[in-house]
Design a protein around this nucleic acid. Structure first.
Lengths: 211, 211
DNA sequence: GTCTATATACAGATAGAC
DNA sequence: GTCTATCTGTATATAGAC
């Protein structure tokens, strides 16, 4: 086993993995054949089995790879007041979706299709979603405790509704037929609505222009 | 061709169609084999081809059948004022989803997966969605014209955001892991938020208890 | 490690008896 | 109309040469 062999093997393995990740994300598990992966990665089918044993194992490893860039940047909230933190979280969600359209779409379709069987991949996705929502609850709760938001608001429900709106904007984006306002527009409108809801201020107050 | 034969043929055809509708909705097109449809409908594969020519035609006919109960009841809005009409539309959406969980889930997954190729089925689903949103825009617009809602609101954007929230609540329902508030709860919270947004009233005003 | 050749299973679809 | 038997293609996976 020479170094040269090791390196080449590693690169080929990665090439297969990258190709598989892309194809699974674009087409789903069933509709992606190993023949196609082999063709587009320019290797033989047999080599895929040598590296990954089975289609299912390849899939799981490829999906994990796709999930790698998924994380939440809590540090970016430091130094902002609560309304600005809420706005920042909303923007973070949008930017993340925007930067990962293909894979987000893929995981969304997985989520919608799965019949509630526990799935390792989905539980990881759900965890990220839950963490994000919990950040939102915390910020809103803190704002209420500090008197920035009125006591009449309901942090868990308001957070869940904001998350639903974000998820819905995401879905509409995938539908888009031209008659729906574009996502970026709706995000701005959501921030205005949320600001109004959380502070009780008059309509049209700009949350948008904040630092 | 006796009547007896006609009737039996019709029943068998319907049995195949019902089985196919269910399996396609639960598993999708690729993951549903005609062998499975034949087995569960207790007929031979050949009979499926005799009745429907091909898997693709069976699919299209089965999907149309699934779409049959999809419609929007505009008559139910008569005699209500605008805020109540908005609330009624929101409730209608929720009830509809609740009554058609399986097929709604199926069409949602179709929508999310499709890569924007024009699809006869999806365009029908999109049309229903668009009609529903347009009803919402009309109601909000009329309310604004009549001075029930302030001029500062933005009917197309507000309607689109409400639709996004509804779609998002729908998606969250499919995810639900127990940590998210239940859909019915969020629907009520959405109505409160919308009422507040559209009328500029203080937090907590009940839109819920309206006729 | 990487290939070609092959085994095996099952998909969609057809032929033809009844 | 409904069946059994079969065709043809392609899928996952294996064997074995290099």
């Amino acid at each position: 086993m020479t170094d040269q062999q090791s390196v080449e093997s590693h690169e080929t393995r990665e090439k297969i993995l990258a190709t598989a990740s892309r194809l699974f994300s674009e087409q789903g598990y069933d509709s992606t054949s190993l023949s196609q992966v082999a063709r587009e990665a320019r290797v033989s089918k047999a080599l895929i089995f040598w590296h990954f044993d089975s289609k299912e194992k390849l899939y799981h490893i490829a999906v994990r790879k796709t999930l790698e860039p998924y994380f939440i940047d809590v540090a970016a909230l430091a130094g902002l007041d609560e309304p600005a933190q809420v706005a920042r979280l909303i923007d973070q969600f949008y930017d993340f979706v925007h930067d990962n359209v293909y894979s987000v779409r893929f995981f969304l379709s997985l989520t919608v299709q799965s019949e509630g069987q526990p799935d390792e991949v989905l539980s990881r996705v759900n965890e990220l979603y839950r963490v994000f929502r919990n950040s939102l609850v915390s910020v809103i709760d803190r704002g209420r405790a500090r008197g920035v938001f009125p006591p009449s608001i309901d942090p868990p429900r308001d957070a869940a509704l904001i998350m639903a709106s974000l998820a819905g904007i995401l879905v509409q984006q995938f539908v888009n037929d031209g008659s729906t306002p574009v996502a970026k527009d709706l995000i701005e409108h959501l921030k205005i609505t949320v600001f109004q809801r959380l502070t009780g201020s008059a309509a049209g107050s700009p949350l948008a222009g904040r630092p």
